[in-house]
């Protein structure tokens, strides 16, 4: 009996913690349907009737769906490039002995510790020299060189891909490129998927770099568009509209999370064990 009560209390606490995780989002959803005046005068769990009004205020100011679409245009190619080229690089570093292999690996280790903002000024100067401002290229192409992902995949390949497999393929006359695509890729796919989903979330949430590089309204990614909330007196005078904007902005990533939570969970877990 005491055992059951204790267990019950534990479950209760776990659920309470789960609620704490979701409460801010619940408050957000409810407040998104209420008028600014209602929100400051008190709280209730009953949704209000101002959703339409808030919606109009928000979309009068900016088109969040355009921002979401732009974020897709940046995040998806960046993620695919990151996944493909990181695997390629990791495989190259893990299985081939060539001059400079160790140097490249050393540079990767070093750059994993470098704060991103260290290169911000130089990065922008470079982009303008190459006429890449307002282009998605500087947001997408650098994904080819993701030191963290390469590092992780290299370790994974070393531990899970037997050398004999590749050697056997060579004896059969398979080309190196063929081996990579037909033998290596399927084996490392789960690891790539987990890294890929994290890369996607990182790209999706990225704020500082797109904020500096993208100036055209119709090219702004979601977080950049969200930050322009501060520029609007119109929307700021209504808390309900702010809540609604935040709510709309997090829906896509929530969907991704629901669909890929398995990979996300295993990615985080993998980080712990691999170390």
């Amino acid at each position: 009996m005491a055992f059951k009560i204790k267990k019950g209390i534990l479950y209760f606490l776990l659920v309470l913690l789960a609620l704490t995780c979701m409460l801010p989002f619940a408050l957000m959803m409810i407040n998104a349907t209420r008028t600014g005046a209602d929100i400051v005068s008190g709280f209730t769990f009953i949704p209000g009737k101002a959703l339409k009004e808030n919606w109009d205020t928000v979309f009068d100011y900016f088109n969040l769906f355009k921002g979401i679409w732009n974020s897709v245009l940046v995040s998806v190619p960046a993620t695919l490039l990151c996944a493909y080229f990181s695997t390629l690089t990791a495989y190259g570093l893990a299985f081939y002995e060539f001059k400079g292999n160790k140097v490249v690996f050393g540079a990767i280790l070093a750059f994993m510790m470098i704060p991103g903002q260290l290169s911000l000024i130089g990065f922008y100067q470079l982009c303008t020299k190459l006429h890449l401002v307002n282009s998605y290229i500087p947001l997408i192409i650098p994904a080819i060189a993701a030191p963290g992902t390469v590092f992780f995949l290299r370790q994974y390949i070393l531990s899970s891909l037997p050398k004999s497999l590749i050697e056997a393929a060579r004896i059969d006359g398979a080309s190196e490129i063929y081996s990579f695509h037909k033998i290596v890729t399927p084996i490392v796919a789960p690891a790539v998927a987990t890294m890929g989903i994290m890369a996607f979330i990182g790209n999706w949430n990225s704020y500082l770099l797109p904020m500096i590089l993208i100036n055209k309204t119709d090219k702004m990614t979601l977080p950049v568009m969200m930050a322009t909330l501060k520029a609007s007196n119109h929307i700021n005078s209504n808390q309900g509209a702010i809540y609604l904007s935040v709510a709309i902005s997090i829906i896509p990533i929530l969907l991704v999370f629901v669909a890929f939570s398995k990979y996300i969970i295993s990615s985080v877990s993998a980080g712990a064990i691999k170390e």
Partner: peptide, 11 residues
Amino acid sequence: TKVQTALVGGE
């Protein structure tokens, strides 16, 4: 910041 980076970059 934006104007600065754009103009310094010769846009």
